[in-house]
Structures are given as structure tokens and as C-alpha cells.
Design a protein around this nucleic acid. Structure first.
Lengths: 203, 203, 203, 203
DNA sequence: CATGAATGAGTTTTCATTCAT
DNA sequence: TATGAATGAAAACTCATTCAT
């Protein structure tokens, strides 16, 4: 009837469902997932899942959002202010990799989201979110102004940085991938910072 | 039963189906695709599709393989020998981008393949193919020996290069993406070559 | 998932489906039966049929089992203790025939089961069931000991008796068969008891 | 165009198909049989099968007929005139059993025919065939007239005899059946001849 | 005549979603 | 609110039959 704030009880059940959904969607993929399985593993009735999320699509989207939020949180915790810009750049990348190493299901969710919903839904992936993007570009501008980074179009850097991370994570999590994801990203960032060309660089 | 060589007639029908499948799988995604639709658009009976490919999964995989082969071919045509190593690196990236700009469906197929089949199947994506990989790493080694590129672990460079391209293509093809894919990749490679750090580089 | 006791409601629906399935399988044969038809006639959704029985094969097997159980019950009700052994033998045969005359669909189910599942499944046909068989052979032994029947190998008698009944029922239910099944079985048992050879029997 | 007699070449191919069909129908059952499999095993094109038999149903029926004819032939070869009536009766039963022991596929065909076509088609099973039936009843009449058999309604005897054989063969061929079919039939006929009642019989 | 590629009607089975309890 | 039984739309896949070569 009324639209009061959700009870803590309801919130708990919600999270219980989201956590289960994350595992199942990641393991089976969106299309292959049977909502009944999520309900069973979350120890709730199927009706409850639908009460909370409306339909399978929304359940998935909520799961993806939840996943990105946890990633965001993790990044904020990990990346400390006060370091040099380059250090921060490295820390972002490293934390990003570490997060996905700790939560490989999140990679699958990210991939499933892209595969099943494409442009139709607002892309929840971190670097694409306007807010984060702005924040990041401001950071880049300051670093360039301070002479810590080369003067390059910040949008281009943002794109390249995000694309490199995205590609590394997606490729680095495949069964066959050798070495840790963390290492893969670290090396990639190294090249990204120093470039491939022979040079007499500062840092 | 029989294992005779396929008639040219059969091959033609096969390609007819594959071309249609590419479009439909790209538009709808693997799970959402109804084989009947492919059959209808390819102007063949559904039975014919199954006769040629056995099941939906194999049809998709054949489509993906077909797609990679066309990309491979395109790259070999576009990337001319005789240029400088850096030039070749750029040409690979550019051609790669140009291909996907010409055939945006191929991006979707690549994504769908990763999303629906993961590590279960041999990854057909170009840079993952051992053969291509070896070829590429040999090229890098030569370039480094010639002093055209910095001395870096070739495996790391290959990974980073491939991941950057993959990420750029996947992100750059989304509806919301501004600018052309070609531009996005071009700028990314630029940064990748020169690095982000302030420097007094040669080229 | 859950394994709680089925509710009476569920049991009712189960029986409703089984009764319909008996009719349809008998009329159309196993392979020719469309589960949709059973669902429609049972006034339930097709999903409900599958929820209860898993698949067509299990539905059929459950139907066959159900049918045998009803036959068993009928026989126990009809065949009264206390008569002479010969009388009981006749009563078994007669009741058997009467049952199939009342429920001709059961004959078809029996035939379909043999035709579609052969030795793969435990033969549910009455006389084949070890339990009933032992019971029957004990009865024969007593009758022979009491001098009411000739001394013959009980296993052979059981086989012959069962085979004769089975054959009579299967043949006697065909469209073209003249006379009632009851009569056919009665006459067959008569010959079976007295033999074909000319004789001066006691009766 | 014209309707000339089939060439010996055609007849050979016909038999080749029928022999294969017998095996496949027996192994898979009517509904489960794929005509393509028969064609492959018979080393002819599928079209050829259809040219010769029109459709699957007719192919099966021809197979069943073929099977009965071979049984008939076998019986005529095996059952010698000149023996006593009782001896002939035994020989019919024994030969019948022996035939099915030699050709277990024929049992399955018989069962499949009953299961899939019931009364719809003229029953090809031996004892049901009017011609054979008349012949058999004439034989019984003579035996009774000669005092070799008890005076019983010949139609009843024929039914019982046929039903007993049918039931024995169908039951005796199941995987689990102990002892040989021949033995089972032999013992059954023994009881059938002498009866179950205690007696002072002649033979 | 022989062949086997092509066809599409027909069936099984699944699962998102609803709703009575 | 929570539940899970019921539903039926939707899709994969098969195979009898046809017919162009």
C-alpha cells in the first residue's frame, strides 16, 4: 500500500538474493540462468525474488549494479590520495585487477551485461560512468598541469586506460590465461606509461 | 555418413547461411537468436541449417570462425610488409579497427562468443590464436633487435597490445561511443607507443 | 529440490493426469501420443504434466505402474480364499479377463510397454513380478500336495499359465476378435486344465 | 509407365532392404526407426527405399509380412506329415519356438506390429490368418474324429493354442527370461496336452 | 531408375512469470 | 509478505517425404 522505507529484514533478503544471483549469473551466464536456482540457493521462494526485482532482467541489472558498486567502493578504499599521480594511476589499475582477482564472478557479470544488454541499458561499467569519468579526467588534467604526465587529450587517455584495463581483465580471466591477472595488468600499465618506443624517459 | 567432398552447391548454401547467421547472431545475441529466423532470412528450410551445422551451438561457432577468418584475411591484405616496425604496428591496429568499423557485427560475435562459451571452446579471437601470436612475437623481437622498439618482454607487449585493441573495439562500438572506432584506436595506439610519461622521445 | 510429502491437492492432480494419460496412451500408442493432448484432456497446463512426471517416458511408466496396481487390487478383491484350488485358478483367470474387459486400455498399455521399453525396464506385467510369482507358485505347490493338481514343475505351470493369459488377453482384445475376452479365457483355461488328450479324467 | 514384372535386380534390392529393415525395426522399434538408417545399412539411397515401399508404414508392413512368410515356410519345412496328430501339434509348437529362437528380431516385429498398428491392419501373425486357421482347424477336426484328441470346440483349441504360443514367445524372449524359448514352449505344450488335473490319461 | 539434399510440420521440453493460499 | 504450484509461450531439433539432378 504505502511506500515506506524497506525494512532491514527486507534489505537483508535483498542482499542475500543479489549475492546468490552474482554467483549463478556468473557461472551460468544470463540466458542460461534459471531464476529457480537462484531462489533455491538463496533459500527464498521464487515469488520473493520476483517481488524484489520484478523480472529476470532487472534482477540481473541490479546484480551488475551491485557488483560495480562494490568495485567502486573497493577502489576508493584502496587508492590513497597523497601519492604521486603516476602512483595513483598504477594504484587504480592494480586495485582494479586485484578486485577482479578476488571476485572473478564480477568479470563474468560485466561480460554478460555487455553481451546481453549492450547499448540498450546504461552501461554500468566503471569507467564509462559519466561521474567517474569526470572525476578521472579532472585528475588527469591536474597531473598534466603539474607536469607529471605528458600533455595528451584527457578523453583519449581515459578511453585508452579504460580499454586497456577492460581488455586485460576480460582476457586475463580466461581459463587458459597464464600468470596472474594482477601481473598482466601491471605489465600493461608499465608499457602504457613508458610507451613502446625507444626513449630517454624521465621517471 | 558419407564423407565425400562438399559440392560447390553445398558450399554456396553454407556460406549463405553463415552470412545470415552472422547478422542475426550479432543483432540478437546467441541466446536470443531463433534458428528459424536465420533459416527464413537465408531462404532455406530450418532442416537445412541443421543438416549443415548440426546444432545451434555449432552454427554459432562456425559463424565465429568464419568471422575471424575474414578478419585474418583482411589484416594480411591491409598490412604491407616493408614499412617500419612502428608503421606496421600502427597498420595492424588501424586495419583491425577498420575491419570492425566495416563489420560491426563481427564485434558482437566476438563478444557473444566470449559470453556464451568462455573457456570451453578454443578462443578463436585473433590475437589469442597461438599461430598468430607466435608470428606477432617474432615480429616484435625483430623490431626490438633492430632498435625500433624498446626492449620489453614480448609476451607482455603482445598481451597489452591485444588487450588494448580488444577493449577499444568492444567499447568503441557501443551505441553511446563518441567518435569513430578508427580514431579511438589510433589515439590509443599513439599513447601506447609514446607512453604517458613526460619524455624526450626519439620518433 | 524439496522432498516433502506431496499434498493431497497434488496427489489429486497426479491421478487426474494419470487417468487421462491411460486413455490417451492406450488410444494413440506411446510414440504417437502428444503430451499436449494429455494435458488438454486432463485440463492442466503442459508444464504441470512435466512438473509431475519429468518427461514423457516417466509419465508412461507411471501410467503403466498405476495400471498394474489397479489390476493387482482388483485380483485381490475378486479372488476369494476358501474355494478349491482349481476354482481359484479359474477365478484368477476369469478376474484377469474381466479386468481387461472392463479396462481395455490397460491391455494396450501393457502392449505398449513391452513394445517401447522391452527389457530395459522392470517388467511391470503382473505375472512377471517376482512377488506375485512366488505367491502363485506357493499356491500351486500346496494344490499339488493336496492332490488337487497334477505334479508338474511349478515354474513351468506358472509360465504356461501366465503366457496363456497374456496371449489370450492380447489377442482377445483386438477389434476383429469374436466373442468376449472372458469367454476366450474361460475356454482356454478349460483346455489348460483338462488337456487336449482323450482321457478319463476326474474333473 | 508400364507395369511389367519387376526385374530380378529390383527384387534383389527389395530383399536387401527388407532384411535390413527387419534388423533395424526389431532393434529400434517402429517409431524410433529412422528410414535413413535402413537406407544406409542397406547401402541404397533413401529415395530407393521410398520408391520400393511408398512410405515407412508400408515398409514396416512389408517387413512384417516377409517375416511371417519366412516363418510359414519354416513351419512347412519342419512339420512332416505322417506323424501322429499329437506329434504334429508338438512339432508345430516346437518349430515355431525354434524359428523365433533363430530369428529373435521376428518376435520384436510381431510385437511392434501389434503395438503400432493393432486392428487397423489385417493381422499378419500366423495363427490369425484365415487361411492358416482353416487349415489348422481342419487338422484338429480330423484328429478328433480319429480319437487322437478330445472332442473340444476347434475354434477354442485354435485360439488357446495360438495364444499360448504367442504368449510364450513374447515372454520367453525378454532379456530376463531363464531357460531357452524352446524349452519354455515344450513344457507349455506338455501341460496343454495333458492338462493340469490329476488323471489317468491314455498317451 | 537411383540418389540424397532440402524441407517444414510436428514434438518434446524448458522456464519466466503469475497468483491463490 | 512469502511461497511455490501452475501455466503456456517459445525454441531446439528430428525425420518422413519429396523431387531435381
Amino acid at each position: 500500500m504505502h511506500d515506506s522505507a524497506p525494512s532491514p529484514r527486507a534489505l537483508k533478503k535483498r542482499d542475500q538474493i543479489l549475492d546468490t544471483a552474482l554467483k549463478v549469473f556468473a557461472r551460468e551466464g544470463f540466458a542460461e540462468t534459471d531464476v529457480q536456482v537462484i531462489a533455491d540457493l538463496a533459500k527464498v521462494g521464487k515469488g520473493t525474488v520476483y517481488r524484489h526485482f520484478g523480472n529476470k532482467r532487472e534482477l540481473f541489472l541490479a546484480t551488475a549494479r551491485h557488483s560495480v558498486e562494490k568495485l567502486s567502493e573497493f577502489l576508493r578504499e584502496q587508492v590513497k590520495e597523497g601519492s604521486s599521480s603516476v602512483q595513483i594511476l598504477r594504484e587504480i589499475a592494480t586495485s582494479y585487477a586485484r578486485y577482479f582477482e578476488l571476485h572473478p564472478e564480477s568479470v563474468e557479470i560485466m561480460i554478460q551485461e555487455r553481451a546481453s544488454f549492450r547499448e540498450q541499458v546504461f552501461p554500468t561499467h566503471l569507467m564509462h560512468r559519466a561521474e567517474t569519468r569526470n572525476e578521472f579526467e579532472t585528475f588527469l588534467n591536474q597531473a598534466m598541469a603539474a607536469g607529471e604526465l605528458r600533455q595528451v587529450d584527457v578523453a583519449d587517455v581515459t578511453n585508452a586506460f579504460a580499454d586497456l584495463l577492460y581488455g586485460s581483465v576480460v582476457s586475463g580471466c580466461l581459463e587458459g590465461a597464464k600468470g596472474s591477472l594482477l601481473q598482466r595488468v601491471d605489465r600493461a600499465i608499465d608499457i602504457f606509461l613508458h610507451g613502446l618506443l625507444p626513449t630517454a624517459q624521465v621517471s
